[in-house]
Design a protein around this nucleic acid. Structure first.
Lengths: 143, 143
DNA sequence: CTACAATTGAAATTCATTTTCAATAAAAAT
DNA sequence: ATTTTTATTGAAAATGAATTTCAATTGTAG
C-alpha cells in the first residue's frame, strides 16, 4: 500500500531505528508530499506541526530513509538536494519545473539503447539516471 | 574541429570576454581533459602550469563557459559540480564511476518514450537529462 | 522498572561557493 | 604609440549548507 506511512515506520523499526516523535513528524511530511523537497523545506513544513524539531534531525532522517530506499534524491538545475518518496523498483522521474511535483514512470524501453551505447563505448554499465523536466497540468493552467 | 581550443578563444572573444592568461590556462585544462572535473580539480590541474591562478577565476571562467555552452555540468551521486567539454547539439553522458571519464552519446531513440510519458502524466515536457554510469575500458582492465 | 544505546537539538565546525574591492591588464579609441 | 575604458584578476571577507560534537533525553528490550 504505497503512500501509507505505517509501512515506513515498520521498515524503520525493523532496521533498528527508534520511532521518536521528531522522526515520525519528518516521515509524515515526506509521505504526505508528492513534491521534491529540500532538507530546509522538509524542516519548515514539519515544524508547523512540531515546532521543536531541529534541522539536524531532518538531515539524519533523510539519510536513513535514503539508505532504506524510501526516499530518493532529485537533482535539479539549481540544487541537488531534493527528496521525494521512492517508487517500487527502478523508475524515472518527471519533475515540474514550477512546483516541484514529481511523478515516477517506468522506462524499460531504454535497455536497447544502453546495449548499443555499451557496445560502442566499451563501458560496462552499472546504472543510469533519467529525469524529465516540464510543467505539470496544474502549473500549465496557471499560465 | 572539436577538441581545439582556438575555437573556444574565438567564441569567448566574440562574446566580449577578454583573453587573459588565467582564463587561457583554465580553458586549456578543460579542452585537454576528457574527464569530469570539479572546480578544485580544474584549479589544481591548471596551477601546475600557472601557479598564480586564483580559485575564484576558475569559478568565474566555468560560469562563462557553461553559459556559452562550451562545458556542461555533470551530476554525480556524491557531488554535482563536475564539468566537461560539451558536445554538439543535445547529447547524453556516459561516465566512468572510477576515473570520471565522460563520453557523449546520441539518444534520439528516447523521443517516443517521452511522448508516452507526456500523454500519461499530462506534463508539458521542457527538457530531459540522461546520465549512464559504469566502468570505462581502462578501469575494467585494472580490476 | 531498569539499563542500555540510539536519538535529540544546540552550538561549534567544516567546507564550498559568492561577494567585495582595489589593483591590473586587455582591447578599443585616439 | 599612448591613452582611455572597463573586464578581469587574486586576496580576503562573507555567506550558507551540511557535518560533527556533546551532554541531555527518551525509545525499547529485558
Amino acid at each position: 500500500m504505497p503512500g501509507t506511512d505505517g509501512n515506513w515506520f515498520e521498515i524503520l523499526h525493523k532496521n533498528g531505528c527508534r520511532l521518536t516523535a521528531p522522526r515520525r513528524a519528518v516521515v509524515e511530511t515526506l509521505v504526505g508530499s508528492v513534491h521534491a523537497l529540500t532538507p530546509v523545506e522538509v524542516y519548515n513544513k514539519t515544524r508547523k506541526g512540531y515546532p521543536g524539531l531541529g534541522l539536524v534531525s531532518v538531515y539524519r532522517t533523510l539519510e536513513k530513509l535514503e539508505k532504506l530506499g524510501l526516499v530518493q534524491r532529485v537533482h535539479l538545475t539549481k540544487g541537488c538536494q531534493g527528496f521525494v518518496k521512492a517508487g517500487d523498483g527502478h523508475q524515472h522521474l518527471m519533475i515540474c519545473t514550477n512546483c516541484g511535483k514529481a511523478v515516477l514512470f517506468e522506462g524499460d524501453q531504454l535497455d536497447p539503447l544502453f546495449n548499443i551505447v555499451a557496445k560502442n563505448t566499451g563501458f560496462q554499465i552499472e546504472s543510469h539516471w533519467l529525469q524529465v523536466f516540464g510543467l505539470c497540468k496544474a502549473c500549465q493552467s496557471e499560465a
